[in-house]
């Protein structure tokens, strides 16, 4: 509709003011002024996003210490496959992704369905409580989780006191438990965030569909899988893409809860890139190669998720 309107205007104006040259320049000016509104952002995003992407690509074929870089062809890319730290980082990030994202999305969906019940009491209390973790900064909550799961932390005191464990578990020094803590932490922080998206989408679902299903004898589980999930498909797709991109880049939690340890068992790709560039002797070239792995993963996973979810919106 709006397109039709502007088209009509464009035709009207020159007809009406055919004579004056000044009006003509005015119209020309108005057509161009739109670019003035957007130009600063275009330049800024080009300088701070696209240009660095190109730079990183070029860097991924270079190697050397600090500023002394030279082209080494595909050597960095070959180095990737034989680099145990990189393989550990890739494996850990994949584990976080494959377990945490589905876990969180299912949990958030489930909570939002429970909260969508119109007869439920204390609804806003539950909603606010479950959303509350989102107001914390990633660093702050990471430090809290690190202390909670420490050897003498509250979780261990609780486990021992109530007989769930005979002695304190050193969560953060155990390769398996350290990963569990990271996954629990991210799930704690982001479940409420995703739940809010589902809740608002559920409010737009026509209640009569559920009534019709109930009359047809569908139980709660059938209703969930055959009405709720298909109706929320676009928003589930959106949240799984944002969560995937987020988890692929996980940094703050890993650095502040386990610092990648014990022995690289929780190191993430982002942390490895940071370490390669700023903790070890800087090798910006190889760091850029590793960073392109994240780029490739983001692109591939986004495409897969679009495919799985069927048609693009």
């Amino acid at each position: 509709m709006s397109q039709q309107l502007t088209k009509k205007n464009e035709m009207d104006i020159p007809l009406r003011h055919k004579e004056t040259k000044r009006q003509k320049t005015n119209l020309y000016f108005r057509k161009k002024i739109g670019w003035l509104f957007v130009i600063i952002s275009i330049i800024a995003i080009t300088i701070f996003n696209f240009y660095p992407m190109v730079q990183a690509f070029l860097l991924s074929f270079q190697s050397g210490m600090g500023g002394n870089l030279e082209y080494v062809g595909l050597a960095n890319w070959k180095r990737l496959f034989g680099d145990p730290t990189f393989i550990a980082a890739l494996t850990n990030t994949s584990i976080f992704l494959l377990i945490q994202v589905p876990l969180m999305i299912v949990l958030a969906l489930f909570l939002s369905v429970l909260l969508n019940d119109p007869t439920l009491k204390f609804k806003s209390f539950f909603r606010i409580a479950i959303f509350l973790p989102c107001v914390t900064s990633l660093v702050a909550y990471s430090v809290i989780f690190k202390y909670l799961f420490g050897v003498d932390g509250l979780i261990n005191q609780f486990l021992v006191k109530f007989g769930f464990a005979t002695q304190a578990i050193n969560f953060l020094a155990d390769p398996f438990w350290a990963k569990v803590v990271i996954i629990v932490a991210i799930t704690w922080r982001w479940t409420g965030y995703n739940m809010i998206f589902y809740l608002s989408a559920l409010q737009n679902v026509d209640k009569s569909i559920y009534e019709a299903a109930r009359i047809d004898g569908a139980n709660a589980i059938q209703q969930f899988f055959q009405i709720t999930v298909p109706m929320l498909k676009p928003i589930i797709l959106f949240t799984s893409i944002t969560s995937t991109i987020g988890t692929l880049q996980i940094f703050d939690e890993v650095v502040n809860i386990t610092n990648g340890g014990p022995g690289n068992s929780t190191i993430s790709i982002s942390q490895y890139i940071y370490n390669l560039s700023f903790e070890y002797t800087p090798d910006f070239g190889y760091a850029s190669t590793v960073s392109y792995v994240i780029v490739i993963l983001v692109v591939i996973l986004s495409i897969i998720q679009f495919r799985v979810a069927g048609e693009r919106k």
């Binding site: 860097l59 940071y274 960073s291």
Partner: peptide
């Protein structure tokens, strides 16, 4: 540009 991971551009 929303798809660009920050870790990929922080070095440049």
């Amino acid at each position: 540009s929303m798809m660009i991971p920050f870790a990929a551009i922080m070095v440049p």
